[in-house]
């Protein structure tokens, strides 16, 4: 009874017209070798995050939720979403937006851990890399050693700080604040060791497209990305933001 198609059959489109809609190359061209996350041997859980960049809308809900949840001092960030205007060559669309949520990668080989002179930073059995605030001397060696700029000195506590995967929430059976409130649904959190879990299923399904930041650094991140463009995998070559820290602390 109902007609779901336009009454006039659409003629075959000329290639040039289709080209308008199809011709622009996707930035993420050939996927690099997908890192194959190994299941941790003993621990029951191995927490990890998958960021589906295609879903990110750059709303910074994650950024601000993290700040409120974790009382991050003004001007510091455990996570944020870098946003770029990218000029596109060979495309009718002159430029595009690229967003990249960044946070601690909870590396399996975390360079921040061995450098800590007092053993304050360590990787929990469940994969979460944390700082023991009772032990940290605030030497910032870990801050230097992290290849991802994921750490900073918290000026309220004068200790090293970073994303904890919201361990306090995860331990309570909840989701990290940034994941819970991700408007685009880009952040997926879960257990690498749970083959039936959402995270593992998505990782397995997306296999070849899964990438990590700075794979060459040997850090074996446990934050994975879908839709990660090579140009953004390491340090980004381009015009830096005009952002300036508002106030120096002292």
């Amino acid at each position: 009874m109902k007609d779901h198609n336009p009454p006039t059959a659409a003629p075959a489109t000329s290639p040039s017209r289709r080209a308008f809609l199809r011709g622009i190359p996707v930035l993420t061209a050939a996927a690099a070798m997908a890192p194959a996350p190994v299941l941790a041997a003993d621990a029951t859980h191995h927490w990890a995050m998958l960021v589906d960049v295609r879903k990110c809308i750059g709303c910074q809900a994650c950024t601000v939720a993290c700040i409120q949840e974790n009382a991050v001092p003004e001007g510091s960030f455990r996570t944020f979403v870098s946003t770029y205007s990218v000029k596109l060559a060979d495309a009718e669309q002159p430029a595009g937006t690229y967003m990249l949520p960044r946070l601690c990668n909870h590396c399996d080989q975390p360079p921040c851990v061995p450098v800590c002179p007092v053993g304050a930073t360590f990787k929990r059995a469940d994969g979460i890399v944390v700082v023991d605030g009772d032990r940290c001397v605030g030497c910032a060696y870990c801050v230097q050693a992290c290849p991802y700029d994921a750490r900073f000195i918290n000026h309220d506590t004068d200790k090293a700080e970073k994303c904890t995967f919201c361990a306090h929430r995860v331990d309570a059976g909840l989701l990290p604040a940034c994941v819970e409130t991700c408007v685009g649904g880009a952040r997926i959190f879960g257990d690498l060791n749970d083959p039936a879990g959402e995270l593992r299923r998505r990782l397995d399904a997306a296999k070849a497209e899964v990438k990590v930041l700075k794979p060459e650094s040997g850090t074996e991140p446990r934050v994975f990305y879908i839709g990660l463009d090579e140009r953004f995998q390491g340090r980004v070559e381009g015009q830096g933001t005009l952002w300036q820290p508002r106030a120096t602390h002292g």
Partner: peptide
């Protein structure tokens, strides 16, 4: 005229 222009990002302070 770089191909990539960062529109939102934050800076990390010097820690040492």
């Amino acid at each position: 005229n770089p191909d990539i222009v960062e529109t939102v990002n934050v800076a990390r302070e010097v820690a040492w």
